[in-house]
Nucleic acid binder design. Sequence first.
DNA 1: CCCGAATGGATACAGTCGTATCCTAACGCT
DNA 2: AGCGTTAGGATACGACTGTATCCATTCGGG
Lengths: 209, 209
Amino acid sequence: MPRQVDHDERRRLLTEALLRIAGTRGLRAVSMREIAAEAGVSLRVVQYYFANKQALLESGLTELGARMDRRVKQRAAAAAGELTPRGVLAAVLGAIVPFDEQSRLDSMAWTAYYSAALTDPALAAAGLTLPNALENFLTLRLTAAQQAGDIAPDRDPRTEVAGLLALANGLTSSVLSGQRSHEAATEIIDYYLDRLFGRDHRGFDPHPP
Amino acid sequence: MPRQVDHDERRRLLTEALLRIAGTRGLRAVSMREIAAEAGVSLRVVQYYFANKQALLESGLTELGARMDRRVKQRAAAAAGELTPRGVLAAVLGAIVPFDEQSRLDSMAWTAYYSAALTDPALAAAGLTLPNALENFLTLRLTAAQQAGDIAPDRDPRTEVAGLLALANGLTSSVLSGQRSHEAATEIIDYYLDRLFGRDHRGFDPHPP
DNA sequence: CCCGAATGGATACAGTCGTATCCTAACGCT
DNA sequence: AGCGTTAGGATACGACTGTATCCATTCGGG
């Protein structure tokens, strides 16, 4: 039984067990022994593949970031039929707000990590790269959309993107706490996108006759 | 030294010590012994005035809610010179995003409580009353503003308020993580309020000539 | 005056935590 | 075939947790 084990595979297994616990019972409930039990292995195995708990936690955060990134790209590609800037924006924002059980669990874990990072500098750095990258990416797209005439010239792309991302984060909070359904959150996002892209009754017409 | 102690005062002291720890080092760092040390008393005193840790945590959440409420009312009253609906909205939203050291610490503690509440039903109920009350209050005000002609008739007050509160929460997250300054967050809020109240160049004029 | 309640110091207890150590079993390689 | 490395089971250690208990003060009211 020894020898011939895929270390990366083992680490992936343990990281997934960690995220399952963090998503259902919070980071407080994450201990080396709990991870071992969740993964169906002994405590020694967890210790064998991760030098210490800190490394395990960082691995969890990295995996969580990768999942978010994958989800965003997946939804953006699914909406590729309509390559409109609005479609991209809607896909990305829709991928942030949890829409199924798995993304709900991941958002829970993400929230737990976020609040831990506020008082743990080791996690803070790793947790900020993804949001910043998203913000820059969307700002580029929206600026291009503005130059193409898809949104009004007096809109500020940077502010709009910052606002929309903050909106999506805030809505995620309310969805996680059961205050609002996923559908209600999506409606609010659409409401704002409608106004940004000029589908309100007195707004900017992207393609005047 | 015994006798003649104000129990409420003692509990307030301990609760403040708890919130100081939660705001600076997170809820994870909150233990009975740490609270005792922070408050400058012995462990026994903490046990004497709170039956268990759970009661202490709930007291912290209650106090945090009271502080938020106080801040909102204070800022709303300070902006009472201009009784405009926009002034009220700006004051409330501005009170949510941390604007000084104390409100930053409280927001930190609030975030810690929020994420703990996601996996601890005992805290969940108490944590939701304040946001819901705020949302209802603001929706009433905005509906009245709409009937008075201060915002366009095609706006949906419920959606607008839900969006603005989610926006303020999301901005709070980014301010706490150092991603954005308080001023930058305020500008984004103002940007959205400008559009809602018709100060954009092609928008609704609240008082046409 | 003094007795009983209020207040809090000191210490103990049973768990759980992250981490370290000891030891055995199984495989690849020469 | 046997040797050394790899993989993991079992267990221990010291620190820390919430909670409980024992005991000494000190005061108000009879």
